[in-house]
Amino acid sequence: MSQPDFQLSRPADECRIVVAMSGGVDSSVVAALAAKTGAEVIGITLQLYDHGEATGRTGSCCAGQDIRDARAVAEKLGIAHYVFDYESRFRESVIDDFADEYMAGRTPIPCIRCNQGVKFKDLLGMARDLGADCLATGHYVRRVMGENGAELHRGADPARDQSYFLFATTPDQLDYLRFPLGGMPKQEVREIARELGLAVAMKPDSQDICFVPDGDYAKIVKKVRPEAGEGGEIVTRDGTVLGAHQGLIHFTVGQRRGLEIGGQPEPLYVVRLEPETRRVVVGPKSALAVAAARIEDVNWLGEAFEGPMTAKVRSLAKPVSARFDGAMLVFDMPEYGVSPGQAAVLYSGDRILGGGWIAETVAAEEALAA
């Protein structure tokens, strides 16, 4: 069995490690690895939501069966396990924000909001209150000690890397966090779970938006904000009406399918959403090219950085060369799929420098005309 370094400052048998246990295979293996160090281990599970069918759905997280799975793993490992009801906090800080962002015509990323608040603020505070030496999670990122302290780096397995979702981690939080799976491929993690006889060894991974039953996010948004189902017009950039829609929540920038405006001379894509007029504005693919983006609420992980960097503007996108002056992110080449509400994460090689939220974009066409 692999035994990653938890980077403890004292002998392990004198330490206490708190593990965030979601009920999945990743956090279960983290708990097992922590217990193997000889430290006292406490597993904490936060019940985050209870949306009926979501609690029993394959790929959910932190609800229903997941809580039972976490408890069963803790019992098998012989570690303490506690469950805390954070449903109200999660609804206010993540689900309500998710709905409001869609209502405002932006594309939200609830996983980052969850890490920012419930997981890396509230849960970390709990771990400190318990006198723990660190909080360990099952994220696939690496904590590397550099010349100026702890740095956050991509996970060794590119297919599992979760660094995009953790850009808002603060230096103080990073000092206290541990990510023991960051150097492993998923296959090895599952093998450890099988060797230990953990029932979650082959449990499917949680989905991107864990609290959305069947992936129908529009249903959740309308449940939280009933007015979200109000329709409007689908128009071209010059205002020509091409059709109607049943709510902005059904669209994201860059979307092509589902517009139901056939008979056009060329494929049309969602270029922007206008919540004030409830209009969906469409245009050719060339209209999606973005030259720059204004970034808000920037978080730097460590010292300010002025060297060559790359930027990632979607979780599944490849990092691209860019320049950042603290407010404007300028791409070396036009980038597609850049949407307000999403995150722009900055890298130097494998190191995560930080990032922020995309507030607005500058179309490549506009930049050329300026």
Rank of each mutant, 00 (worst) to 15 (best):
V189I: 14
K219C: 14
A311F: 11
Y347W: 06
T277S: 14
V241Y: 00
V212I: 12
G307N: 05
L77H: 05
V345F: 04
A289P: 06
A363W: 00
S60Y: 07
C134M: 11
E53L: 06
A322T: 08
A35L: 12
D208A: 09
G283P: 04
R178P: 05
M126Y: 11
G302L: 05
A289H: 05
L166A: 02
R89T: 14
Y217K: 06
G38L: 02
A34W: 13
E230R: 08
E147V: 08
V320L: 13
V189E: 15
P180S: 08
I44F: 01
I261G: 01
G307T: 07
G262D: 15
Y336E: 15
F90I: 13
M21V: 14
G182A: 10
P275E: 13
V144T: 06
G117M: 02
G125H: 08
I67S: 02
G149D: 05
F98H: 02
N115R: 00
S60R: 01
E276F: 09
K223L: 15
A311I: 09
R113D: 14
A63T: 15
I192F: 12
E365Q: 11
T45A: 06
M333D: 14
S163F: 07
V94I: 15
G64S: 10
G149C: 07
I44D: 06
G243C: 12
H153P: 08
G254R: 00
A127G: 11
S60I: 03
I352H: 03
A32S: 07
H153E: 08
H245V: 15
V235R: 02
A70D: 09
A201V: 07
I44N: 03
K223N: 12
I209C: 09
R160M: 15
E274W: 01
M103V: 13
L329Q: 05
V189F: 07
S2M: 12
R314Y: 01
Y336F: 14
P340A: 05
P11F: 12
E260R: 03
V270T: 10
V338Q: 12
L259F: 01
G146Y: 01
L152M: 11
T361M: 10
K121V: 15
I209S: 03
E227G: 01
C111W: 04
D157E: 11
T170S: 08
L273Q: 03
T170K: 04
A63M: 11
T37F: 04
C210E: 15
R16F: 00
P319K: 00
G247F: 05
P213D: 14
K119H: 11
D216E: 13
G155R: 05
R272V: 00
G38R: 02
I44E: 03
L196D: 01
Q187Y: 04
L135R: 03
M309F: 02
V144E: 11
E266L: 06
P110T: 13
M328G: 02
D96K: 01
Y82I: 14
T310R: 02
L33F: 07
G146W: 04
C15N: 06
I249F: 04
V30T: 00
V189D: 09
L135D: 10
A127T: 10
